[in-house]
């Protein structure tokens, strides 16, 4: 039930108008950062104020809202923001991607393909993709205006020279509509390909930095790379332990002191849908012995722990008493 103490969507109508004007400009110039008068929201910067202002400006009474944080509907932030909108708009909320008309997200794009008519709103901490390379705003404004993006290529070159591969695995810079260099927000690079020619409208809001940008439906989005070091997404050797999906972004959870890992779909809706459809995973953690783990002292010796030589190898770092305990 909507709380009558607030205007619809929390923001006053004039503010929504201002934000919509910024969004229209953003949609007209794909990937270009449009400054806007970011308002004070009932939660701090860094918690999605930009995304919330964007959603608040586009949401209507008949919309169906989904909110996710790192792919999950049930994490604290997602829950809070969803409740915020329920209270200030009274709209129907959902956890199913296919049923939502607006999806607000922090750091993930849902696995389920989006469709025409859907809007996805990204929460953006730092809208400027060149920030770490060139902190001066005046310089980056000029670089965007003149499409002088050599600096970013220099960074990628440097990564390959020093590390053998491009090191960025999230917030991977993209070129939108072959014109503007854009930060896709801290989504994993795994999600970058989803942005290309997406039928949905992609909106980006940065509250603290006071910028809005957009990628209209069916826009070309290209991740930067080199011809001989092409862009690649992450791959796992394992499938989701719960639903068996081999094509989704997996969260890796360490479940015991031995380093056993549970791989689970990050997108909770996608995982749930698959399980409802009857798919099943191994339901088990994967044992991955890591030789650099410290020895457990005293009780609790699990499988795979090597005896003898290992203790010796670590001997210099153990005190006499500790060595006695192990032996």
């Amino acid at each position: 039930m909507m709380d009558d103490n607030y205007n619809f969507g929390f923001l006053d109508e004039r503010t929504k108008k201002m934000i919509r004007r910024a969004m229209l400009k953003a949609v007209a110039i794909p990937g270009y950062q449009v400054p806007f008068g970011s308002r004070e929201m009932p939660f701090a910067y860094g918690w999605g104020t930009g995304g919330v202002q964007v959603t608040a400006s586009v949401i209507g009474r008949d919309d169906v809202l989904k909110v996710i944080d790192q792919g999950a509907d049930d994490t604290t932030n997602a829950v809070n923001i969803r409740r915020f909108f329920a209270r200030t708009t009274g709209v129907t909320t959902t956890e199913k991607t296919a049923q939502a008309s607006i999806i607000q997200t922090r750091h993930r794009i849902p696995e389920t393909a989006l469709e025409e008519g859907q809007v996805i709103v990204f929460q953006v901490p730092m809208p400027e993709p060149l920030f770490r390379l060139e902190p001066r705003r005046r310089e980056t404004i000029t670089m965007h205006a003149l499409a002088e993006y050599g600096l970013m290529n220099v960074k990628l070159y440097e990564d390959i020279a020093q590390l053998g591969a491009i090191s960025r695995t999230y917030d991977y810079p993209v070129l939108v509509n072959e014109r503007y260099l854009t930060s896709p927000s801290p989504i994993p690079k795994f999600d970058n390909p989803k942005m290309h020619m997406n039928p949905a409208l992609q909106l980006f809001g940065a509250g603290r930095e006071k910028r809005i940008y957009a990628i209209p439906p069916y826009t070309a989005v290209r991740s930067l790379d080199f011809e001989d070091h092409p862009f690649e997404v992450q791959r796992w050797d394992h499938a989701c332990a719960l639903c068996g999906a081999a094509d989704s972004f997996l969260d890796e959870m360490i479940v015991d002191d031995e380093g056993s890992r549970l791989f689970v779909c990050s997108d909770s809706d996608y995982c749930g849908e698959r399980r409802d459809a009857g798919y099943c995973g191994t339901q088990q953690a994967v044992h991955m012995p890591v030789n650099l783990l410290p020895l457990p002292l005293g009780e609790g010796r699990g499988e795979g722990r090597e005896e003898g030589p290992r203790a010796e190898a670590l001997a210099p770092t153990l005190s006499q008493k500790e060595r006695e305990v192990i032996q």
């Binding site: 002088e148 993006y149 050599g150 600096l151 290529n153 220099v154 070159y157 440097e158 390959i160 020279a161 790379d225 080199f226 011809e227 001989d228 070091h229």
Partner: peptide
């Protein structure tokens, strides 16, 4: 190497090798 290559990258050169 990056310093020397920068101008070429700015002109669109995209082959690392």
């Amino acid at each position: 190497g990056a310093n020397i290559g920068e101008r070429m990258m700015a002109l669109g050169s995209r082959h690392y090798g």
